[in-house]
Design a protein around this nucleic acid. Structure first.
Lengths: 354, 354
DNA sequence: TTGTAAGCGTTATCAG
DNA sequence: CTGATAACGCTTACAA
């Protein structure tokens, strides 16, 4: 018999953690009864319930998630693989998602692939290893290995963010292309014809792809060809670099469309550094409408992406799937053009020095 | 005997996930050998190793984290309970921490208590339930229930952020009070005498406490009494609200010291809204030096908190504890005053309307 | 309702 | 180095 569970580790002072069987013993009931008392309080006699509760109390019993997970094959954890947590747009998403899932007792395990496809494949596999109950991924473009793994395992999963050309089911997001069309229309309305795009890497990132496509398509619709398109990291630093690559003044660009607010913030900073006045000399637009966008000066004209709503919808969809509701219908949330101070009328040619 | 593991769920198409025993069978070795081949490849014959690897490959075997956790009593997860993930200072921390832990195959489970003490108690318990291998908490001020739980369970844990009056071991951070002294000294050097503080709730938050204390102490050292101290949420909105409460113009305040960059950003915005020119009419300072601080205009004078270094040090400390190195000695990382454009000479009395 | 006992899929122990 | 076999701590039929 198990004479002593003591001092297994060198932690000689530590008493072993009480197990459910200890609780059962202390309460004078069976293991099964104790288990039920905790998971389904209504399914046991009040007397049993109280005895168990008292025992839990006095022993300071804390269930073992690992054992529970193994036996019940549910970890009550959902995983999310996202590009990065450094972009406020994703930390907002995580924040809201976490709140939504918590309402159903679910924890969120967030992993960032930092825009690296191999990483994403690896992280999804790690989450599967971890036996997360469900999985959330950003974007609709994933590696075949990931797709087939998910299908093989049969784990509920949802794709978030883009609704551009998304499948009928399991994708929640917004239309990136349509949003960018709003931006271009706005700029054209202001008289801009010399427009450049500062966007993110499109390989393996359909959000960036659709945003670029939206810009190109809308520009073409107005008979405009983009002066330049540069691809830089989706960060503030990326925006700064991209600005220099585009060199709006030399290239007579009057409007700079950025792929994200972060890039726009970087571009704005680079413009200021070079003494270029926004929006008088150059209009700059962002995408996402992170909190910071409104605080920059000039405040950023941008697309408001419905991140909080998306997170909540995603959380609910996941909860639904976990309850056996099947893959939800895809959903496209509305975006909105937010006009602030970083865009203005195109400067007239005469105002252009050089 | 186990005739069929098929179709347990209604997912009739799904084959059951292969177990390690399946791998062992396919490889023609014992369960134990297969286990060892995966966890200690060097401890088995190459022949065995290859057979196992091939079987893993062909079956698409993915280990069950739950089972592994139960048997090995290690989840390879570390938990962190932090105030919120909405403040970039914490998302940066999480980001770096995650990277550091990932190097040792550890995953991070981050939970936010949103500055609520009860939540913190609850979240720590949840992480213990989850059997995280180690725990990280922000700050040094925690509920007794949390402390005693942690001690009872004997789980490795570390307190991050403050090194003000921290215990000799297990606390990594920086000195909040000393940092604020630098701010006040800077302002006094600029001739400011009418200083107000816009800080965070100090109850249950020793960072805010020490920051306030630093301001008060340094001011007193210069023979100055704070014009006003307001307590508001540690957010942009909090800064906006606090600004109005302080009403610098009416109260003839020339310098506004904020508890965080986020608050400072809000204050800056409120000042602009009211037509108050920073720093000509009013100096504003932040704390943290989040990326955004340098992009605001005027760019924020602030304290650079060594968040990335802190995260890395924390990660390494955790890894060390998990390797049995014991509780690390407490560490105080240096902060730095970053002077930008939001602070300037105190305006002379004559310049003060009213 | 409650008790019994059979898993859950690994790791760990200990002979061979 | 390998192979049985016993944990790991809980859930969950199934029987009582």
């Amino acid at each position: 018999m198990a004479v002593s569970r003591l001092m297994k580790k060198s932690n000689s002072y530590l008493l072993p953690r009480p197990r459910l069987s200890d609780v059962a013993k202390a309460a004078g009931v069976s293991l099964g009864a104790a288990s039920k008392a905790l998971s389904a309080p209504d399914a046991v006699r009040p007397r049993t319930l109280h005895a168990v509760q008292r025992a839990v109390e006095s022993l300071g019993y804390i269930p073992s998630g690992a054992a529970r997970a193994l036996a019940s094959r549910s970890t009550e954890m959902v995983g999310v693989v996202l590009p990065t947590i450094s972009n406020p747009v994703y930390s907002t998403f995580v924040h809201e998602l976490q709140k939504t899932l918590a309402q159903d007792g679910l924890h969120l395990l967030a992993l960032a692939h930092e825009y690296n496809r191999e990483n994403e494949v690896e992280l999804v596999e790690r989450l599967v290893r971890r036996s997360v109950d469900a999985l959330i991924m950003i974007g609709t473009d994933h590696d075949d290995r990931t797709i087939s793994l998910l299908n093989k395992i049969g784990i509920p999963h949802i794709n978030c963010w883009s609704s551009d050309k998304a499948p009928k089911h399991g994708a929640l997001g917004f239309n990136n292309q349509a949003a960018m069309v709003k931006i271009i229309d706005h700029l054209v309305r202001l008289g801009h014809k010399r427009i450049a795009m500062l966007g993110g890497e499109t390989w393996n990132n359909e959000r960036a792809q659709w945003r670029l496509r939206g810009v190109q398509k809308a520009a073409a619709a107005h008979g405009i060809e983009l002066v330049k398109v540069v691809t830089v990291p989706l960060t503030i630093a990326g925006g700064q670099i991209g600005y220099r690559q585009i060199d709006p003044v030399r290239n007579n660009v009057t409007a700079l469309v950025c792929g994200t607010d972060l890039q726009a913030a970087g571009a704005l900073d680079a413009a200021r550094t070079q003494g270029v006045v926004v929006p008088d000399q150059l209009s700059i637009t962002g995408f996402d409408d992170i909190e910071m966008a409104a605080l920059l000066s000039p405040a950023l004209t941008t697309i408001h992406a419905p991140i909080a709503e998306l997170a909540i919808a995603t959380g609910k969809a996941i909860i639904g799937m976990l309850q056996g509701h099947g893959v939800p219908k895809s959903l496209s949330l509305p975006t909105e053009l937010v006009i602030r101070q970083s865009t203005g009328p195109a400067r007239t040619k005469s105002a252009h020095r050089n």
